[in-house]
Simulated scan of single mutants.
Amino acid sequence: MPWLATAVTTVGLLSTGAAHADTFVPLPGGEISRTLGDGTVVTVRLVGESATISPSMGATPVHRNAWVSGRAEVQVAGGIKKGSIQPGYVVGCQVDIAGGGVDGGASGKTDWEGNASGGLTSGGNLSLGPGEATSFVILDRESANDYGDESHSSANSFKGSEASVTWADSTIGLSGCAGYAQARAFVKVKVQTETIRTVVTLWGQPFSLG
Score class of each variant (00 low, 15 high):
Gly48Leu: 00
Ala178Arg: 08
Val90Gln: 04
Gly210Phe: 09
Ala59Asp: 13
Ser161Arg: 02
Gly78Thr: 04
Ala185Pro: 03
Gly30Pro: 09
Glu150Val: 10
Gly39His: 00
Asp146Pro: 13
Val8Asp: 15
Ile32Lys: 11
Arg45Tyr: 05
Pro61Cys: 08
Gly58Ile: 07
Leu120Asn: 09
Thr6Ile: 11
His63Ala: 05
Gln182Ile: 07
Ser175Trp: 06
Val76Arg: 01
His152Ala: 07
Ala185Val: 04
Ala19Asp: 12
Gly114Glu: 01
Ala66Asp: 11
Ala116Ile: 03
Asp146Thr: 15
Thr52His: 01
Gln192His: 01
Lys159Ser: 14
Arg64Gly: 11
Thr110Phe: 06
Asn156Leu: 10
Thr23Cys: 13
Gly173Ile: 10
Ala155Met: 10
Arg141Ile: 06
Gln94Ile: 03
Tyr180Phe: 14
Glu73Asn: 06
Ser175Ile: 15
Val76Tyr: 00
Leu27Arg: 09
Asp103Val: 15
Glu132Pro: 00
Thr52Tyr: 02
Ser164Val: 06
Gly160Trp: 02
Gly148Trp: 08
Thr171Met: 12
Ser151Glu: 15
Thr166Gln: 08
Leu202His: 04
Gly29Gln: 06
Val68Asp: 08
Ile138His: 09
Lys109Met: 07
Ile172Glu: 05
Gly70Ser: 01
Ile97Trp: 14
Gly173Glu: 13
Leu46Gln: 07
Val8Ser: 15
Gly39Phe: 04
Gln182Asp: 15
Trp67Thr: 10
Thr10Met: 08
Ser151Ile: 14
Glu150Trp: 07
Thr110Pro: 04
Cys177Tyr: 08
Thr134Cys: 07
Gly70Lys: 01
Phe186Lys: 01
His20Cys: 12
Gly123Glu: 13
Gly104Ser: 03
Gly37Ala: 04
Asn156Cys: 11
Phe158Glu: 03
Thr201Trp: 08
Lys81Ser: 13
Lys82Phe: 03
Ser161Asn: 01
Lys159Glu: 12
Ser54Asn: 12
Cys177Gln: 14
Gln94Ser: 11
Gln75His: 03
Ile85Leu: 13
Ala185Asn: 04
Ile196Arg: 00
Ser135Arg: 10
Tyr147Gln: 11
Thr198Ser: 15
Gly204Asn: 05
Ala106Thr: 06
Leu126Tyr: 14
Ser122Gln: 05
Ser153Pro: 06
Thr171Tyr: 12
Met57Asn: 10
Ser135Trp: 06
Gly58Ala: 15
Gln192Glu: 03
Ser122Phe: 14
Ser164Trp: 06
Pro26Leu: 09
Ala51Cys: 07
Arg45Met: 09
Pro55Met: 04
Thr201Met: 14
Gly88Ser: 05
Ser143Thr: 10
Leu202Ala: 07
Tyr180Asn: 14
Ser151Lys: 14
Phe24Tyr: 11
Gly88Pro: 07
Ser170Phe: 05
Gln86Asp: 08
Trp3Phe: 02
Ala133Lys: 11
Gln205Cys: 03
His63Thr: 07
Gly114Gln: 04
Thr201Lys: 06
Gly48Ile: 00
Val76Met: 00
Asp22Thr: 14
Ile80Ala: 00
Val165Ser: 01
Ala7Pro: 09
Val11Leu: 09
Lys159Gly: 12
Trp3Cys: 02
Leu46Gly: 10
